[in-house]
Amino acid sequence: MSFTLFPGTRRGLACESLAGLSVGDALGAQHFVAPVDVAEPPDGPWPWTDDTEQACCLVATLGEGDFDRDGFAELLGRHHDPYRGYGPGAVVMLRQIREGLPWPIAAAAAFDGQGSAGNGAAMRAAPLGAWHADSLAHAAAQGARAAEVTHAHPDGIAGGVAVCVAAAVAAAGRLDGQRPRLLAAVTAHTPAGRVHDGLVEAAGLRDAGQAAHVLGNGTRAMAQDTVPFALWVADHFLDDYPGALAACIAAGGDVDTTCAIAGGVVAAYTGPDGIPPDWLAAREPLPSWV
C-alpha cells in the first residue's frame, strides 16, 4: 500500500467505520420489533445494542502501538449494559472483569474452559481494521489482540481477525481509489479453521439467499455462521451501504450483528457519504464518552 496514515486520519477512518457499524446495528435491531423495509425504514430513534457499545469501547481505546488490551477490558467492564442485548456468557464475563478478575482468566474460563467461539469479537472489530488501513498484517495481528480480551477460542479470534482485515482492505481501497478483492484478501489473512473454511466457500457463491443458506446467517451467534456471510455481503455490496443492510435483513438470523459487521466494513470503503443522512439521524446518539 502506497500511503502513510497520520493519527488524525486513522481516527477519522475508525470513526467513519463506527458510524456504519452503529447505524447497521441499530437498524438491524429494529427488525426484531417489526419487519424492516430499507426503502421505508421505521421512524427513529433506533436504539443500538451491545455490538455498538463494544465497538465504542474499542474506538475509545485506539492509540499508537499495540492495541491496549488492558484498557479495552477496563472499558468493557465499566460501560457494558446488560440490557443492550449481551448474551448470558458475556454478561458474566464482563461483570467478572468489572469486579477485578483479570481478562485472560475470565476469557479462558468461558464456556467451561473452551473460550467463546461467538461472534462478539467480530461484531465490534471493523473500526480497528479501518485504523490499520495501511497494513493488512498489522490489522490481522491487532484484530487478534482485540479479540483475545473476551474470546479465547480460535474461532472467536478468527472472526475478529477476519472482520478487522476486511475493514482495513475496504479503507485501503477507498484511499487507493480502487475497489479491492475483499474476500480474497481477508481469506489470505484469516487463521485456518471454520471461519477460514467459510470464507473459502463464500468466494464461490453469487446469490445472497444462497450465501445465507450455505454459510449461515448468525442464528447460532457463532463466528463461523456469522462472519463469512456478513463479509460476503460486504464484498458484493461494497459501494452500496443500503444494499448491504437490505441483504442482511432479508437473510434473517442475527440481523443486528450481520448488519453491524457489513455496515462497518462498507462504510470504511464508502465513507460517511455512503450512509443515508436520515438513517444516521435516526440512530440513537453514541455515548458521550466515546
Rank of each mutant, 00 (worst) to 15 (best):
F6C: 02
R10H: 13
R10M: 07
C15Y: 01
E16S: 12
L18N: 02
L18H: 09
G20N: 11
V23M: 11
V23N: 02
A29C: 02
A34L: 13
A34C: 05
A34E: 12
E40W: 06
D43P: 01
T52P: 00
A55G: 08
C57E: 00
C57A: 14
A60Q: 01
A60G: 15
G63Y: 08
F72K: 01
D81C: 05
P82W: 05
Y83D: 15
G87N: 10
M93P: 00
M93S: 13
L94P: 00
R98I: 00
E99A: 14
A106C: 12
A106G: 06
A108P: 02
A108G: 13
F111E: 15
D112N: 13
D112G: 12
S116V: 03
N119V: 03
N119I: 05
N119E: 06
L128C: 02
A130T: 08
W131T: 11
H132S: 12
D134S: 12
L136G: 08
A141V: 10
T150S: 15
T150G: 00
P154A: 10
D155A: 15
A167K: 01
G173Y: 10
Q178S: 12
R179I: 14
R181V: 13
L183A: 14
H189W: 06
A192H: 15
H196G: 01
D197K: 06
G198K: 04
G198E: 11
L199M: 10
A202T: 10
G209A: 09
A211P: 00
A211D: 03
A212L: 04
H213E: 15
M222K: 13
D225F: 07
L231F: 10
A234I: 11
A234K: 02
H236F: 05
F237N: 03
P242Y: 05
P242W: 10
G243V: 07
A244S: 11
A247P: 04
I249A: 10
G253P: 00
V255H: 01
D256I: 07
T257M: 04
T258P: 04
A267E: 08
A268S: 15
Y269P: 00
P272G: 13
I275D: 03
P276D: 06
D278Q: 14
A281K: 07
R283S: 05
P285W: 01
L286V: 05
S288Q: 13
